[in-house]
């Protein structure tokens, strides 16, 4: 704009002013302020959200945190043994399912995509498939879980029959009962849900490994697997770890697929200790379940008839947020730390 008025008498002073930023750049400042406001409002929303949840849950957290931690689903909010233990246990096992199923498969798939996959149509299809899976709404995964594990298909029936035959030989009863929502169904559904996230983040971490590292290892006669094992994976480990932590946090906070699969919101009786024997340990996977987000949803719905459930839901949210934010923060800190170290 300044250039447009060349020939004006005071052009020299205007150019000088522009260069030295004298005078007020009202529009520039306004623009900058608007942008900062966008970020500021986002921050403010987060703060309000945290304060709101904390104040709602405060009475429960301060008065009876111990009982709340060890309590169970109850019909009345005034019940002393109202609490989240069943949600915690359910979410814990879901996290274990995710760690056992999604992490190895996801990381291995990422290794294949980045290290092995030839450049052909099949690889590009694979790439597209993974990316699109990551964008599928979580509730659709719930439909998949409902279809596969609860309603049962030929494949799942075959699998369940095998497991049950084995279990029958040992304990004389069926382990898995189809047509019923189980911790197994919920855990596998969420493992499937976060798989694409694990693959994408792990693939990114592997892609960031410098080519020279690989070449160095090949140079001394290492095979492909040895290169991956000794150079690529160790270098990519922090990035992969970040991705897995984010995936874990996502799985722990996810409710929609579990609602579809049929997590219990009514009453779930307290069970025997699952560590009393192998049968109880595996038996719980074939049992009805609930999880932290489901507990919260159930209580929010109950608050329509019994107002005391509102604060209980708030307190449960605080507990859930503590877990999720800790996992996320560790992930972010890890990533920043390694970025800085390498950058």
């Amino acid at each position: 704009m300044a250039l447009g008025t060349i020939g004006d008498q005071d052009v020299a002073s205007r150019v000088e002013a522009t260069i030295q930023r004298r005078g007020r750049d009202v529009r520039g400042t306004g623009f900058r302020f608007a942008l900062f406001a966008a970020l500021g409002i986002s921050t403010l929303i987060l703060v309000i959200l945290l304060v709101d949840v904390l104040t709602d849950g405060w009475p429960v957290l301060t008065d009876r945190l111990g009982d709340f931690w060890s309590g169970t689903l109850r019909s009345r909010s005034s019940d002393d043994s109202l609490g989240i233990s069943q949600g915690i246990v359910g979410s814990f096992w879901i996290a274990v399912f995710v760690a056992v199923l999604a992490f190895p498969i996801g990381i291995a798939a990422a290794v294949y995509l980045e290290e092995y996959a030839p450049r052909n149509w099949f690889t590009s299809v694979l790439d597209i498939v993974v990316r699109n899976l990551a964008g599928v709404p979580s509730v659709v995964y719930g439909l998949l879980g409902l279809f596969l594990f609860v309603k049962g298909t030929a494949v799942t029936n075959w699998f369940v029959d095998r497991v049950n035959n084995r279990w029958n030989a040992w304990y004389g009863e069926d382990l898995i009962e189809l047509g019923q929502s189980t911790l197994f169904a919920g855990g596998v559904t969420l493992a499937v849900l976060v798989l694409p996230i694990v693959i994408i983040t792990a693939a990114e971490a592997i892609r960031a490994v410098p080519q020279s590292l690989r070449e160095g290892a090949y140079g001394v006669g290492a095979t492909k697997w040895e290169v991956i094992k000794s150079q690529v994976l160790p270098f990519a480990a922090p990035g992969i770890l970040t991705g897995t932590l984010l995936a874990l946090a996502r799985a722990v906070g996810e409710a929609a697929p579990l609602i579809l699969v049929g997590a219990i919101t009514g009453r779930l009786a307290p069970r025997d200790s699952m560590f009393s024997g192998l049968e109880d340990f595996f038996g719980q996977f074939a049992d009805r379940f609930t999880a932290m987000p489901i507990v919260i949803v159930g209580w929010v719905q109950n608050s329509g008839r019994d107002e005391g459930f509102g604060p209980a839901a708030g307190a449960a949210i605080v507990v859930l947020l503590v877990f999720v934010i800790i996992m996320n923060s560790i992930a972010v800190l890890l990533r920043n730390y390694f970025e800085k170290k390498r950058g």
């Binding site: 109850r74 019909s75 009345r76 019940d79 219990i264 919101t265 009514g266 009453r267 779930l268 009786a269 307290p270 069970r271 009805r288």
Partner: peptide, 19 residues
Amino acid sequence: VRVAELFEDVAPDVFVDVE
């Protein structure tokens, strides 16, 4: 649910789930 809760105190080894 309420009956199950009351029953739990009487017969702690019976697990009643309700949906």
